[in-house]
Amino acid sequence: MTYFAFMGALEQGFAYGFLVLGVYLTFRVLDFPDLTVDGSLPLGAAVSAVAITAGFDPFLSLLFALLAGFLAGMVTGILSTKLGILHLLASILTMIALYSINLRIMGRPNITLLGQSTILEPLTNAGIGMFNAAPLLFGLFSTLALLLLLWLLHTAFGLAMQATGANQQMITSQGVNTDRVIILTVGLSNGLAAVSGALLCQSQGAADVNMGVGTIIAGLASVIVGETLFGCRTIGRALLAALLGSILYRLTIALALSLKLGQFSFTPSDLNLLTALLVVGALTLPKLRRKVSS
């Protein structure tokens, strides 16, 4: 693997890190399988791209993306809690609705950011190469997000959030409205996914309505790979494992793509197969480990 491929994987790993932290919140903390992210990630990209081309500050566009994603997640939460639609189905409904909404926001299937300023501009202006600037900035951002989540999960609301995922009867009898907790948490998770989309669109230079396909599988793969390799004893450890899992996942993909076996080499179209194999591997590894040790 070349240095550029390595830095590229880091950049993607950190950019998707927000999404992975969001997926950790829904799947692991809240026990709410949420596929909305397939729609909220391109939503974030669309909002950010449109905001930038309309002349808004690129950093401000991240905030817009966060808010848009938050609203999308809240819709899923409301469909599931207030209207009683099964969580998985509720999230799929929001996801497909977002496809149309994303097209409406962009007005066309994709927007390029050619010649527009992005959040990377201050760094590249300071003389840092593009390949170093993105991993650096995204790394900083995702670490900040991790620390914020670590704080949030230890607040009173965070405890209620954890209890809502683990024991709804208990937390309801402690006077917590679990509907509200679910709506806010799914909202937050999708806000994070949208920030991922915004970061990706700014580093790749384009937002595309189809860029969200398979997002949830990538997110889940990262969470599971992280958990398997780095453990999840404490909340802090689990959050760190999720972020590291995201980087490891992108590195694995990059490594596989650069692999050559005689005449054979992987192409980007093999990515889905590789992801599936990676998840299966990460899920069975702990069982194999137990078998070997016993």
Partner: peptide
């Protein structure tokens, strides 16, 4: 959590 029964669960530690 029990000590906050009936009170809001905000962003305090």
């Amino acid at each position: 959590l029990a000590n906050r029964r009936g009170k809001p669960h905000g962003l305090k530690p």
